[in-house]
């Protein structure tokens, strides 16, 4: 059974957003369900720090053994940090998707957009 954390926001494309102490900054990664479906992650390609992402813009790709998937940024914002640990160990996405397997930190332009994302219950329903 995939873990769905109660304190996160979700997208239909299987990203999560996790709030931080700074209310306009969110950590983005992919869900436990997504990593399970993708299988062994081999590469993660992430944007440069400082890049401004539009809502639903592709911000990276995730290469798993079985398939390659695009990563979508569900809200507009600026990339203020990326997880460079994934260069050396992309399998962190598999082993700890909600922790060490995070991907980018985003300074969200309009935090109210985050409230429009899926709730944990909504995401649970989405993945059936």
């Amino acid at each position: 059974m995939s873990e769905i954390r109660s304190d996160l926001h979700y997208t239909e494309e299987h990203e999560y957003l996790q709030g931080t102490d700074d209310e306009s900054v969110y950590v983005i990664g992919i869900t436990d369900y997504a990593q399970g479906e993708l299988g062994d992650v081999v590469f993660v390609e992430l944007p440069d720090t400082g890049v401004i992402l539009q809502k639903m813009e592709v911000f990276g790709t995730i290469e798993a053994v079985k398939a390659v998937s695009d990563l979508y940024c569900p809200v507009e914002g600026e990339v203020i940090d990326i997880n460079t640990d994934l260069d050396d160990d992309p399998s962190l996405v598999n082993s700890d998707p909600y922790g060490a397997g995070w991907m980018i930190r985003l300074r969200v332009s309009d935090p109210t957009e985050v409230d429009e994302l899926l709730t944990p219950d909504g995401y649970a329903e989405h993945i059936g």
Partner: peptide, 10 residues
């Protein structure tokens, strides 16, 4: 089965 919980790479 395309893989078991062990995973393809392992």
């Amino acid at each position: 089965p395309v893989q078991y919980p062990t995973g393809i790479t392992e």
